[in-house]
């Protein structure tokens, strides 16, 4: 089995097991070029890239704006086809959106005409059947995310951070093997960001799915991840890849330790090297 705890998965289609596979996501020789628009040359969003994401690991991808991070996630999610190369999830080639993955977008993307609860249940409903157990789990998730009193509120009645938390609950509820997160806290202030990061890792620790987490923020990457992948400016390439061997939970003491500071500097160094 993959090491993903999917014990109470019965309410959703159970994907075929992938015995012996230690990589959940493989990105092999993948590049993406967008055809030229009116303004001349085609855009190489992602240069030929090889990346593996290990089962049950929390991996962050950091890189400057426009280096193809979103494009990479979209290809893993099956929302975009690579120009070359192949993406596999749990050993299967990605051909379209799959029940193995779930995406948390840069914006919360809650449907304004559905309550928080309906929004969170919708994803699960689209992928399978909604029964009482699922409803119960949704309620628990929302409570954990601090939205217990807002389950029947409409998205416009929530703050940006609350909406993003609901979007994360939506993705967690379908219990994906791979959770793809595209700067989910990008629109939040530093304090809320850190707090939500803590909540996220706490929930993730209960059900270690493979996480690919895109961010601009080096502290955030260090706070959350087991591993950080650093990308170059466009056309994006992997220029750094390091393990974050800090103990969990990542308390303030851990994050202010010598080791944390060193990791931070090493990630930053990749950026500064690129500029020179």
């Amino acid at each position: 089995m993959t090491g993903v705890r999917n014990g109470d998965r019965v309410d959703l289609p159970v994907p075929a097991g992938t015995a012996g596979e230690s990589f959940s996501v493989r990105v092999s020789g993948v590049s993406k070029t967008f055809p030229a628009l009116r303004s001349g040359a085609p855009v190489v969003a992602l240069d030929t890239t090889n990346l593996q994401f290990e089962v049950g690991r929390f991996t962050s991808v950091v890189g400057p704006s426009g280096c193809g991070k979103t494009t990479l996630l979209r290809m893993i999610a099956g929302l975009e086809r690579p120009t070359s190369g192949a993406v596999t999830v749990a050993g299967e080639a990605v051909r379209g959106p799959s029940a193995r993955t779930a995406m948390v977008f840069q914006a919360a993307n809650l449907l304004p005409w559905k309550t928080v609860r309906q929004n969170v249940l919708l994803a699960a409903r689209l992928r399978g059947k909604v029964d009482d157990r699922l409803r119960e789990r949704a309620a628990r998730l929302l409570t954990t995310a601090g939205l217990g009193q807002f389950v029947d509120s409409l998205p416009h009645e929530l703050s940006g951070g609350m909406q993003q938390r609901a979007a994360i609950c939506r993705a967690l509820l379908v219990q994906p093997e791979v959770l793809l997160m595209d700067e989910p806290f990008g629109a939040l202030d530093a304090m809320t960001r850190e707090q939500m990061g803590n909540e996220l890792t706490r929930i993730w620790a209960q059900n270690r799915s493979t996480v690919v987490f895109v961010t601009h923020s080096i502290p955030e990457a260090v706070q959350l991840s087991d591993r950080v992948v650093v990308m170059s400016p466009r056309p994006g390439r992997v220029v750094g890849d390091l393990l974050v061997d800090l103990p969990r939970p990542r308390t303030p003491e851990v994050l202010e330790s010598e080791r944390a500071r060193e990791l931070h500097h090493r990630i930053r160094a990749h950026f500064t090297n690129l500029e020179s």
Binding site: A77, G78, L79, P97, S98, A99, A102, M103, F105, A107, N109, L111, L122, A123, L126, R127, V174
Partner: peptide, 14 residues
């Protein structure tokens, strides 16, 4: 329909 909302629905297999 907001294209971002559409993509969200597509990503969940709608």
């Amino acid at each position: 329909l907001d294209p971002n909302h559409e993509e969200m629905l597509v990503s969940f297999g709608a």
